[in-house]
Every structure is written in structure tokens, then in C-alpha cells.
């Protein structure tokens, strides 16, 4: 009853292999719910869109609203700011994007107010471009929310949004 028992199960043994394989599948299937439970739940997903009243925003002003737990900047740009954003040569940009693509309605810039470096909220009307400046690690964004200087890798993200009417934007 001693040495031969210590022998590992025979590798060619079909039934043991099949059992192990079936067991692995079962364990995998059982683990998935334990992982998936941490994903956004049904009630969180249902809140994916928000409507914002923009009737009170004057040219040059910006408001910040909360969407999916993150700040969204809604800026009503002046003609000057639009011109400066549209006159930039794409070659000068770290992350080349046309302002026309970022702001379909040139007067309104809607973007996630989250620095693409490490997630801080940039300050408005600050920095080298007098637009946005992230105080955490010194990223400068222009009047189109594009990264111009500093460690952030990409422009601030533009979420999906639609103008429901002249006074209301639906984000998400």
C-alpha cells in the first residue's frame, strides 16, 4: 500500500482526463457570475442618458453637469474662441482632430471634463490657450478641448449627444 499508490494517475486515462476537463468547464462557468456581478448593473445602465437645459448659458460661459458620475463641460463658445479653434493647423496637434468634428454646432462644445492623463477635472479658462488647464500634472487644452501641451495623450473625449431642441441637450 505504499509506493505504487503515490503514482500519479495515468495520463492516458480517458475517464480521468474527461472528468478534469468537464470539471474545469464547470468551475469556469461558476466563476463568471462572481466576476460579472461587479460590472455596471441594470439600474446603472438605465441611467445612461441625461437631459440638460442650456437655455441660460450666455456666450463665453460654460456649465458642468454630471453624467455617469463624471463631469461634462458644456461651453457656449464666443466667435473668437471658435475662430481660434478652427484656425489651428492639424500638424501642430498631438492628437489631430478637426474642431468641426468635435463641435458639430460650432457654438456649443460638449465634452467629458476629464483629463485624459490620469482623470482629474481640468480648470476652465486657464492655461496657455485660455481654455482648459489640468492642475494635476499641467496639461493645457485649447478652445476645442484638444491637448496642446503637457503629459495627457489625447484630446478630451466628446460623448454622444443630441440637441433635442434649441434649449435641451441629451447626453448619452
Amino acid at each position: 500500500m505504499s509506493e505504487s499508490d503515490k503514482k500519479k494517475p495515468n495520463r492516458r486515462d480517458f475517464i480521468l482526463t474527461a472528468t478534469t476537463a468537464a470539471g474545469a468547464v464547470g468551475v469556469g462557468a461558476a466563476v463568471w457570475p462572481l466576476i460579472d456581478q461587479m460590472n455596471p448593473d441594470a439600474s446603472v445602465k438605465a441611467l445612461a442618458s441625461t437631459e440638460v437645459d442650456i437655455s441660460g448659458v450666455e456666450p463665453g460661459q460654460s456649465i458642468t453637469v454630471l453624467w455617469r458620475g463624471k463631469p461634462v463641460f458644456i461651453k457656449r463658445r464666443t466667435q473668437e474662441e471658435i475662430d481660434s479653434a478652427r484656425s489651428v493647423d492639424l500638424k501642430d496637434l498631438k492628437h489631430p482632430e478637426k474642431d468641426e468634428d468635435r463641435a458639430k454646432n460650432p457654438e456649443w462644445l460638449v465634452m467629458l471634463g476629464v483629463c485624459t492623463h490620469l482623470g482629474c477635472v481640468p480648470l476652465t479658462d486657464k492655461g496657455d490657450y485660455n481654455a482648459w488647464f489640468c492642475p494635476c500634472h499641467g496639461s493645457h487644452y485649447d478652445t476645442s478641448g484638444r491637448i496642446r501641451k503637457g503629459p495627457a495623450p489625447t484630446n478630451m473625449e466628446v460623448p454622444k449627444y443630441v440637441f433635442l431642441n434649441s434649449k435641451t441637450i441629451k447626453i448619452g
Binding site: 457570475p33 462572481l34 460579472d36 456581478q37 460590472n39 448593473d41 441594470a42 439600474s43 446603472v44
Partner: peptide, 13 residues
């Protein structure tokens, strides 16, 4: 009830 209704697989757990 939130666990039972909304959390992914919450009812199961």
C-alpha cells in the same frame, strides 16, 4: 431587492 433585480446574477448569488 436591488441585488435580486438589478445586480448581474445578484439573484443567483
Amino acid at each position: 431587492e436591488h441585488i435580486m433585480r438589478d445586480v448581474n446574477y445578484g439573484w443567483l448569488i
